[in-house]
């Protein structure tokens, strides 16, 4: 599929998905955006769910029992992964944006993602061990 065809002009961002041109920077860009959208959706779902607390233990505690089921725990791991990717990539974006480590941004990204992988593994173990 060629994404630079003139008839594709209207949905320009589809050009992002020409995987032949992907490098580390493009991967960081897309990961940041995908996790951003996911986290915003989660934020509003989270705020809505918290309204159950106004109903006292009668409403909240059955939900807590449900949220301790393995399916919800897997979603927690997914959430943690999104937060780690977005937060740690954000460290790179902010540091380089303030002029720190501009020549080392690639190794910085790799190192941050490795830190993220370790934290995710530790977090996942903790979540499922409980």
């Amino acid at each position: 599929m060629n994404l630079s065809l003139p008839e594709n002009k209207k949905i320009r961002f589809l050009r992002w998905f020409d995987f032949r041109s992907w490098r580390l920077g493009m991967l960081a860009y897309i990961l940041n955006r995908v996790t951003a959208i996911g986290l915003v959706l989660y934020l509003y779902i989270h705020l809505a769910v918290l309204s159950m607390l106004t109903g006292g233990p009668a409403q909240w505690d059955p939900f807590v029992a449900l949220a301790r089921s393995p399916m919800f725990l897997a979603l927690d791991v997914l959430l943690l992964a999104g937060m780690l990717i977005h937060g740690l990539n954000g460290v790179r974006v902010a540091l380089t944006g303030f002029g720190i480590g501009v020549r080392a941004q690639k190794p910085m990204f790799v190192a941050l993602m490795l830190v993220g992988a370790v934290l995710l593994l530790a977090g996942a173990l903790k979540i499922f061990m409980e």
């Binding site: 493009m26 380089t96 944006g97 303030f98 002029g99 020549r103 941004q105």
Partner: peptide, 25 residues
Amino acid sequence: HSAWECTETCPQNVRPAEAIMALRQ
């Protein structure tokens, strides 16, 4: 949004992404 693809591809070592960061400063 700091993809740095410009600096990666530039055939002349202009390093546009670094210029962008310096302008922010």
